[in-house]
Design a protein around this nucleic acid. Structure first.
Lengths: 119, 119
DNA sequence: CCCGTACTACGATGGCTATCGTACGAGCCG
DNA sequence: CGGCTCGTACGATAGCCATCGTAGTACGGG
C-alpha cells in the first residue's frame, strides 16, 4: 500500500513546528485587517481554500505576502494541489498551544464586525 | 458634595472611547514582547502600577513609547498621580467589547511562558 | 506543443515603528 | 529656593512591512 507517502507535488513549503510558534507572531499576523479577514473566512468555511478563492482589496503579490505571513507565523498550513495552493487553519496545533485562543479571537472579530456594520 | 469632580492634576491624557477600540489595534499592541510583558505584569498585580515599577530591557524613552501605544490602542488607562503615572488595565471595557479575550490572551501568554522556560 | 490559470520571486517604495540620547517640564521634599 | 525623581518631547536612525508592478515558474487542458 505505502499509502503513507503523499508527495502529490514536488513543491512543499516550510512551516514552523508547533514549538516554534510564538504568541507574539500569531498576534502580529492577526493584527492586519486583510489577514484577519482571511482567517475569519477560513474559519467560517471550515475547509482549506485556495488563494484565488478570496476577493481581497489588494493585488495578487500582496495576497501572496499575506498568506506567507500567516503560514510563517503558524496560523495556517499551505499545501500545493495542482496549480492551486490550498490554505487551511492550523486549528489543532493552535488549540494545543493556546487553548481557546483562536475561538476567542474569532468571536471577538465577529463581535466587532457586528458593532461596526458589516454584520 | 460635588464629589464627582476629581481633577487631581491638570494633566490628563487622551484615551480612545470604547467604540473606538479596534481588535486589530489591540492585537498589534500585544504583539510586541515588551508590551505583552507589561500587560502580563499589570494583570498579575491586579492594580494600577507606575511606569517606574517595571524593569524593562529598554530605555525610559522607549518605555514611554510602549505605554502610549498601549493606551492609544485601548488596552490600558493612564492617570497622573503626583509625579507618577499610574497604569491600569481596561479590563471592564475590554471584557464588554471582546468577552473573554483578555483572559484568553493572558492564559496563552502564561502557557507559552511555561513552555519556554521562565516558568 | 501552446496557452491559460495560479501563484511566486524580485526590486522598489513609502510609511510605520522600536530604539536611543538629550533636553525639558511637573510635582514633591528638605 | 534647590534639587530630586518621574516622565515627556523632540530629533535621529535603522529596520521592518504593506503595497505595487513586472517578469517568471508550475501545472493542466485542448
Amino acid at each position: 500500500m505505502t499509502t503513507a507517502a503523499p508527495a502529490p507535488s514536488s513543491r512543499d513549503l516550510p512551516h514552523p513546528a508547533c514549538g516554534e510558534i510564538r504568541l507574539e507572531g500569531v498576534l502580529h499576523a492577526l493584527s492586519d485587517p486583510v489577514r484577519l479577514r482571511i482567517v475569519r473566512e477560513l474559519a467560517a468555511e471550515g475547509v482549506a481554500l485556495s488563494c484565488s478563492h478570496f476577493d481581497l482589496p489588494v493585488t495578487k503579490s500582496t495576497t501572496t505576502h499575506h498568506f506567507r505571513v500567516l503560514r510563517e507565523s503558524g496560523v495556517i498550513r499551505q499545501v500545493y494541489e495542482g496549480t492551486a495552493k490550498m490554505n487551511g487553519l492550523r486549528r489543532d496545533d493552535l488549540e494545543e498551544l493556546f487553548p481557546g485562543l483562536l475561538d476567542c479571537l474569532l468571536a471577538a472579530a465577529a463581535h466587532q464586525a457586528v458593532r461596526h456594520g458589516e454584520g
